[in-house]
Amino acid sequence: MQTKYFIPVLAVLMLTGIYSKAPVKLHSIKTGNTAGLKDFMRYTPDRLPFICAHRGGPRKGFPENCIETFENTLAQTPAMLEIDPHYTKDGNIVLMHDATLDRTSNGHGKIVDYTLAELKKLRLKDTEGNLTSFQIPTLDEALQWAKGKTILVIDAKDVPIEVRAKKIVENGAQANAIVISYSPEDTKKCYSYNKDILMEIMMGKPEFITTHDNSGVPWANVIGFVSHDMPADKSIFEEVHKRGALCILGSSRNIDRQFTSGKINAEELKNGYLSLIGHGADVIEADLGIEGGAALKDLQTAKSSKSKYFSK
């Protein structure tokens, strides 16, 4: 076959399903059901540190909040994936960090001014501003995709916590998604709606721990987000652990930013991630999810009761 004919023929074969590329093997976090998810999120001294990829792990060629990006991250490391929901004009929920389209797509203006059908005609940009062939996904699509693969961490943006929790239930994704709560009121509201939904809640100050102690919401339903920076009071890690919950610490505003701006090298980045774990973090929410996963790889080979949840 001459080369000039190969590309169109291959395209036809792919469209008709006669030819398809081999599926990529993904690192997965499989909890099976809500009891498994609660057990996975329960702090134990033998826990295996891992990454939560901020906005799904975007990088060159792979946009934020994009299912193809999620797969690229999981192809290289086990990770939870933090995502951002926004309402469309017709009441659907799509994934995008900003309330506007301009930075991360070839669209313009506010998301809420477009219907889902209109948004699906757009294409996403990667971290370099290059246009890709990838579409804006819906929250429903992401929740269905995540089953048996990973755990989605659904931020708030303009979508109330009870709506995010309802979406998890509607998609039968209780084992594959948690919601972020920014207030004790929202935490109670979510627990009242469904006692199986897990929440990431703010734990940056000792008084936040006391507030949750008195909330009536079990610590089994919680993973604590400590801060985007190392807290002044490092006893927070120990106190959250005493209550049986894991601690998340963010790296996007410190070592990730230092690396991408050229202030530290790859070895210093790796040591930075390991230092966060050494100070008490169990999960690192990282912009550089793949690099973070590589830094923690050796820690994940330890014998652990959590090993059964990780596979490829």
Rank of each mutant, 00 (worst) to 15 (best):
Y5M: 01
I7N: 10
P8A: 01
V9Q: 10
L13R: 10
L13Q: 11
I18R: 13
H27E: 06
S28K: 15
S28F: 08
K30N: 13
T31Q: 02
G32D: 03
A35M: 14
G36W: 02
D39N: 11
D39G: 04
M41A: 10
R42G: 00
P45D: 09
I51F: 03
A53W: 09
A53F: 04
R55P: 00
G56C: 07
G57H: 01
G57V: 04
G57S: 06
R59M: 08
K60E: 15
G61N: 08
G61I: 04
F62A: 07
P63M: 02
E64W: 04
I67C: 02
E68P: 04
T69D: 08
F70P: 00
F70V: 00
F70L: 07
T73Y: 04
T73D: 03
Q76T: 00
Q76V: 02
A79P: 03
M80G: 07
P85N: 00
K89F: 08
D90V: 09
V94G: 00
V94R: 03
H97A: 02
D98T: 04
L101P: 07
R103S: 01
N106S: 11
G107W: 14
G107Y: 14
D113T: 12
Y114Q: 13
L122Q: 13
R123K: 15
L124K: 15
K125D: 10
D126R: 09
E128H: 14
L131S: 00
T132Y: 13
F134V: 04
Q135H: 13
P137I: 00
P137K: 03
T138K: 05
L139F: 05
L139N: 02
E141I: 04
A142K: 05
L143Y: 03
Q144T: 15
W145E: 09
T150Q: 03
T150V: 08
L152E: 07
V153H: 06
D155T: 04
D158H: 03
I161G: 06
V163Q: 06
R164A: 10
K166G: 08
K167M: 12
K167S: 12
I168G: 09
V169K: 14
E170C: 05
Q174W: 13
Q174S: 15
A175I: 12
N176I: 00
S181F: 02
K189M: 01
C190P: 07
Y193A: 08
D196P: 09
E207V: 10
F208C: 10
F208G: 06
F208Y: 15
I209V: 11
T210D: 14
P218W: 09
W219A: 06
V222M: 13
H228Q: 13
D229S: 13
S235D: 14
K242F: 09
R243A: 05
G244K: 02
S251H: 07
S252W: 09
S252N: 08
R253W: 12
D256V: 04
D256T: 08
F259W: 06
F259M: 07
T260K: 11
K263N: 11
I264L: 09
A266T: 13
L269Y: 15
L269K: 11
L269W: 15
L269V: 07
K270H: 08
K270M: 12
Y273W: 11
L274M: 03
L274I: 01
S275A: 14
I277V: 11
I277Q: 01
H279Q: 14
D282Y: 07
V283I: 14
E285W: 07
L288S: 05
G289I: 03
G293Q: 02
G293W: 00
K297Q: 11
D298C: 08
A302T: 13
K303C: 00
